[in-house]
Design a protein around this nucleic acid. Structure first.
Lengths: 342, 342
DNA sequence: CTGAAAGCGCTAACAC
DNA sequence: GTGTTAGCGCTTTCAG
């Protein structure tokens, strides 16, 4: 059951393959009559151009690659969804790969995508990636690359990121505005840029509100899990610093801390206000529901694809506009783990 | 900066393209010396075969398509991860698409994948899909297709599913074994096969334990959300049936019900035991942590790919082994929303 | 052991 | 307006 090819259509109609090809593409130098004949026969036979042949000729696959550190992850899943939707709208399909936060895997994945001749790559760097040559190399080769979320300032390409610093600033300010005087910060190791940025946002919100930064109000966990939040909470409870507010690096950390603090007899938000980060699904069902910062993953995915798409188009036309960095705005979602605004 | 092609390698070495090609593929009729020369030059120049040309010749893309109803979904995200990992191991890449539970979209997506000449397709049917011709058609055309999770018995192809009936049976039996006498069931509309199967499992567990099935212990919600669980709980609370156990169709439903029931003054698990379904992440952080049934998504993804892979191989060899249906076993995860086993 | 030739299906420059 | 030709890069007979 061989597939319908242009050749077959041409044979049936007694015309040349070239004419058939042009007719389907509405070339100006083909008569309307022929166009009609070709098109209707193509329709009738359910002709589908062979994508391999097209790609081989046109040197484009209409496929892009997407590398995420994780897939089973609310935020990244949303990004992936956004990318896929936006891509589909432009006739692109998406090959998704996950690095699992491993530098070696990330490197390998990148090569797999290149081997498949994807038209461009969207990548979020693994936390463990410290050398960026693998990405720099392909950028140098002229492959359109856009970094999203986990980026590196050392890489010269377009990027889409959360405005982490501002987001953290807003969250911290929100705590202060709702009456907190001694705001603690729970975060992971100061390694990824996001951690640094949120920490800086936290600090500058304090400063702008004339609260002195106090190192002993910063609690560092090993990972960013629920258990880490749960574990660190006792230290907050026992601290002599009269902590009355917590800005946690993630919702998970916040939730863990909230549960533990409640167990220890503190009332949230009356004794202590807690705000998380990401607006994960789970924040709606904690008790009390967790105030948080919404990180619009879907939108990020859409924007990332659009940037990449533009670069792909520009590459075809051999133009080269400057790299762009898009910061996606976030917003504080007040729920009941913080006090109401006065 | 043109790419390295076989032609270039052949030119440099003063041999023919054909020889170069065969040398790289270790054909028996090429001298070891030539093989070595070709291979080392290929290595040196970082030669990568052009995948389009290969695909065009070999009629295979080494890409498979994956359609899921949702991506932002713990269970499906796990499946996707499993598929991608298993595929990568065999040198396959995965194009992921989401139907968003729409029949029309599902149909369109399928076509997009076909147009890209994927070597096979993994699909989980949308809840709204009632006509299966779009899938039946491509199976008939000989495209390897494996259904996973949301399947239809009407489709003649290999399938990977959760043993829903047994899982529900086990969950219900677990409630009974831990002392529940009047077990309610919360579920969505009896539309997808999974809903039916879990309902049947619930019923037969009752029967096997000499508990009469009672229609008024079955609560049907419109959707499967937290809010639906929350909303239906009052009915359970006010019921005259002395309900002391709930088997909910999903963790979300269970969590919503648990929160509401607690608000209404019931003690979980002392007054009422609750067990959910799926072992979503959130079950670990509810209070009390929710007992549930683990649905191994990752494993399902791996198995689904393996089945598909086998079919792809068989198709190449033109053999045709019978379709296979794999049921993935689940297991009850006892946590604190149910009483301890005696 | 090696290479010439054909062809996968499509597109585009160029000729008629 | 239409057809011829060439070629994208690779694989695989088949002839030498």
């Amino acid at each position: 059951m061989p597939n319908i090819t242009l050749k077959k259509i041409a044979e049936i109609l007694g015309i040349s393959v070239a004419t058939a090809s042009k007719a389907l593409k509405d070339y100006a130098d083909i008569s309307d009559e022929t166009k009609q004949k070709v098109k209707s026969l193509a329709e009738e036979l359910d002709y589908k151009p062979n994508s391999f042949a097209q790609s081989l000729r046109n040197r484009e696959s209409k496929i892009i690659g997407l590398i995420a550190p994780q897939i089973v992850h609310h935020f990244f899943a949303n990004i992936i969804k956004g990318v896929i939707d936006a891509a589909e709208e432009q006739g692109y399909l998406v090959i998704t790969l996950q690095s699992g936060e491993s530098y070696e895997t990330e490197k390998k994945q990148l090569q797999l995508l290149l081997d498949k001749n994807v038209d461009g790559i969207l990548i979020s760097l693994s936390d463990k990636t410290i050398n960026y040559d693998h990405v720099a190399d392909i950028i140098k080769k002229g492959v359109p690359v856009v970094l999203y979320d986990k980026i590196s300032k050392l890489l010269d390409c377009s990027k889409v990121i959360i405005d982490d610093r501002k987001a953290a600033y807003d969250a911290t300010k929100f705590l202060i505005d709702t009456g907190c005087k001694r705001v603690a910060h729970i975060r992971g190791p100061l390694k990824p840029q996001t951690t640094i940025d949120r920490f800086l946002g936290y600090k500058s919100a304090l400063k702008d509100n004339n609260i002195e930064y106090n190192e002993s109000l910063v609690f560092e966990t090993k990972d960013l899990t629920y258990d880490d939040g749960y574990g660190i909470a006792e230290g907050i409870f026992k601290s002599d610093e009269d902590i009355d507010g917590i800005f946690a690096f993630t919702d998970l950390l916040a939730t863990g801390a909230m549960v533990r603090l409640t167990e220890l007899g503190m009332k949230v938000p009356d004794d202590i206000s807690i705000i998380g980060f990401s607006n994960w699904f789970l924040t709606k069902i904690t008790s009390p529901p967790l105030s948080t910062v919404d990180q619009p993953g879907y939108e990020m995915g859409v924007k990332a694809f659009k940037l990449l798409y533009r670069e792909i188009q520009e590459k075809k036309k051999d133009v080269n506009s400057p790299k762009e960095i898009i910061k996606i705005p976030t917003k504080v979602i007040p729920r009941n783990s913080t006090r109401p605004m006065l």
